[in-house]
Amino acid sequence: MPYDFKNASILIVEDMPPIVELLRQILHTFGFAEVFIAKDTEHAFDIICQHEPDLILTDWVLPGGNGLELTKKIRTDSQSPTPFVPIIMITGFCSKKHVELARDAGVNEFLTKPFTSQDLYSRISQVIENPRDFVKTRHFFGPDRRRHMSINYNGDKKRDQDDSDDVFEIDFADDATDFYGGSEPQDILSRLRQETKDLLPES
């Protein structure tokens, strides 16, 4: 039996309207009937207290606060009705430091922008199929931060490749259109490229 999201509710905490709209459309396609929207942490916590959504997607950077603070509040505030609710942090930050900060705040999953609908589905599926135990210590309350992972990772590491050509295996399409037509922008682009080439010459 496939997932049936029609009885599940989800809260999107995001202040950028087009991203909210895109998420809303994707989640409705997945089958979520009840999608709550909040554009700041205060509004989000009100919705959580009132409706107790089954899943939360939160942006990191929010007006008047951030997704980390919201996560900590959901996990530890005495007023929070759902300290165990799955939280997926959505952000453009992707450094190890940021992932660790999110993990230490108590998020279940981390989704980096830009993401695809498939990425979003994978994170939702992860919290459904592989829920983590919660850990309570004097300084932390949230999903178990330990991950089972292979230490023999052999995949690509963008900055550590000897052959940097691999980085540019991006799909060439006939409709390559990242610049308007006309020669002027391309001329400037070429000039900037040359300037970049000449920057910080190796002695």
């Binding site: 039996m1 009885n7 599940a8 089954d54 199929e129 919660f134």
Partner: peptide, 16 residues
């Protein structure tokens, strides 16, 4: 702590 998986109980398993 092993919390009950409320989301899974509501939506089931098996993917989309």
């Amino acid at each position: 702590i092993k919390p009950s998986n409320r989301l899974s109980l509501k939506v089931g398993k098996g993917g989309l």
